[in-house]
Design a binder for these strands. Structure first.
Lengths: 225, 225, 225, 225
DNA sequence: TATGAATGAGGCTTCATTCAT
DNA sequence: GATGAATGAAGCCTCATTCAT
């Protein structure tokens, strides 16, 4: 029997299309400045269709975070597996692999990354229901929790100087990552020069040298603005 | 003599009142979600009065950043003076002093800090005029420039391992500071526990140990969530 | 079968309704003093509906002129056809027919006439965009151009004394028409007496006698205010 | 006794200054689009001062018409005197003199002319009180009445074909004048070419030839747009 | 007299959301 | 399922007018 072209696309496809469009729009304009109309137009559907699949603007926004966080977890999994299999020799390597994971995650889906990362800005909280916020935090914790767990395993392997350092270390790594992404993105917009990758590398070496036994020198910098 | 309630307050006072109210409102809701009406009500004046002193919402917002950035510069000045006077013995001390300055700055005026720091979020860019953005970046550069200069002087004094490290170092310190403030604030909102100060301290030691000749061990962490 | 009240009217109908309401409101109050709210209420729709069909107040205003100018052209067409077919014997007849066309035009849609005719008053220019003004002038020229062309053909037929008189003649006729409409309307509002038609007739005879070979006497006036 | 420089300018001067500024502003922007602030700034006084001398915006606007109408009367007076003294030989001369008077009047104070002439546009009526409108009409009638009286005297002198023609004639002359001023001004704004004077001249000859016994040919036109 | 800070009603416009088709 | 016309609350901003100084 022939597979006839469906008059109505299947539900999943439709939803995915709308989310894809929403990601682009929300990323470019931010939550408040984005309109459902823009999302609908970008997705090639009518406004009502968006409301058919999503309860409201908040709901649509939040739905974007789930796959992004899932993607982060997917990127951390091989690191964890390699660590479990003994394929990661030392702390610097682990820190580098983790930071690479974060960076690639951000690169793979910049819109989603920014959305997942900065949703708390811009007064969204005041508009969102408590339930909505709860879901947001839950999903956010899941990604970060995985990140911390990997570092924790590294500590067990004796990769780090201080025995309990994994908690502080994860906070610092994560914060540094967020801060650098944000700060360098900002500089890039003004100066046009992109130092994200190199600054992240420097941070990795800096952290590694400090947190791991017998690590090397502080890296030589490159010329800059 | 009788203390009569003045109908017209001093111009400076009025402006300060409105700005104070605006800082609160913008901080709580973010730029887009804040309304001039809210600001006016909070300041106890009519909407028109806000527009009497500020051209528009953007203008009001920007006006908040100037004193905040000035305050940062004021807090960095004594560090620079002490450095010039030889009262700062080594790199770790300098890094600590700088991070303290940043932290105290953020504490002294949390609303202003967040406003100055996160204005780029939430799609404000797409709404603001080019001129407005220019002024914003200009003022922002001023504060960060001062910060970088102090580190640069420290490098000249041989405080840091790599001769040109001050550029990368300033980026990393600033990014770590921003990232930690943001990340820990966020965690605080969810968990209720405040680890901002201790995480910053850890970051300072971590950075110092890595960037300065002959620095100590990675710090022991505290229990956490 | 049941005549059910349609919730969504035909697009054209809706637009026509809004325009009709707008014509009334703009006519009565003038552009600046009219509000979109008044138009919406008069049209029996919500404010947003007006903006669904028209980009802004200017756009709505301009949209009113197109059909009015088209109507003028429609009224001039039979005159031109009769002239081409030799059914108009002389200059006075042509001038009379043209002035009749203008008068009937103004009578048929007084609101539209005034809007098309006086839009330049009241400081509208300073508020309208250059593009808006361009469209306005373009459409205005079209109507007047047709008027002038008919007079030009009359000149070719030897209807007028001076060979090139059609240019000046069209300006004078048009100006006289506008001036009389305006002046007499104004007087009517004050005195309550309507001399528009008779003054136009006088003007026709006056012009014809002067511009056409062998025309008659200046007309006897009627008693007046 | 020495005439000391007054700390406060005298009332008349102040009023005149404000009116002068108001004329410019109202002329350029139209009534609705003009603000008291603009007038005050242009006059170099504070907003409150304007309200000290004028009850409200309407009142200020109306006050501008009095001197303008007075000026018209002043310009018509010598014509009347010359006519009375027998220094005007015939109808064409009288018509020419009158039209010259109108034209010079409009030239001498374009702002005032436009204000006096088009105040009825732009929805002012709906905003003005009945009393205000009454004053306006009264003053307007005075100027036009003088104009008509002169024509009436010309009729008595046998200058015009039809014995009672002065009523219609005055309407037509006045209307033609208004229409031409308006229409040609409008064209001038679009084309940049100024045909006001020549079109008025043509109108004068056209009217004269028609209304006066033994007048000449219709004038040859000039090249145009 | 003169000032200009202060007010608040009102206008234009946007946009999340609904719902008949 | 999908559409898009319709709604109306809400936001930014203007400006005539008032009034304490």
């Amino acid at each position: 029997m022939t597979q006839k072209k469906p008059r109505f696309k299947d539900k999943e496809t439709r939803i995915a299309e709308i989310q894809k469009a929403a990601r682009r729009v929300f990323f470019e304009k931010g939550y408040q400045a984005s309109t459902i109309d823009q999302v609908a137009r970008e997705a090639g559907v009518a406004k009502g269709t968006v409301y058919f699949y999503f309860d409201n603007k908040d709901d649509l926004y939040i739905s974007l975070m789930i796959p992004t966080v899932k993607d982060l977890i997917d990127r951390l999994r091989p690191v964890e597996q390699d660590l479990d299999a003994g394929r990661i020799p030392d702390g610097p390597e682990l820190i580098g692999r983790l930071m690479d994971g974060l960076y690639e995650w951000a690169q793979a889906d910049p819109d989603g990354f920014r959305i997942a990362t900065t949703f708390q800005q811009g007064g969204l909280f005041s508009r969102m229901s408590g339930e909505t916020l709860e879901r947001l935090n839950e999903v956010g914790r899941e990604g970060f929790g995985r990140f911390r767990r990997v570092l924790s395993k590294g500590r067990t392997s004796g990769f780090f100087n201080a025995p309990e350092a994994d908690i502080v270390l994860s906070d610092i790594m994560w914060s540094a990552f967020l801060g650098i992404m944000q700060f360098e993105e900002n500089k890039k917009r003004v100066t046009g020069k992109d130092h994200v990758r190199s600054t992240l590398d420097s941070a990795v070496r800096l952290i590694a040298r400090s947190a791991c036994p017998g690590a090397g020198e502080f890296p030589a910098p490159k010329e800059e603005v």
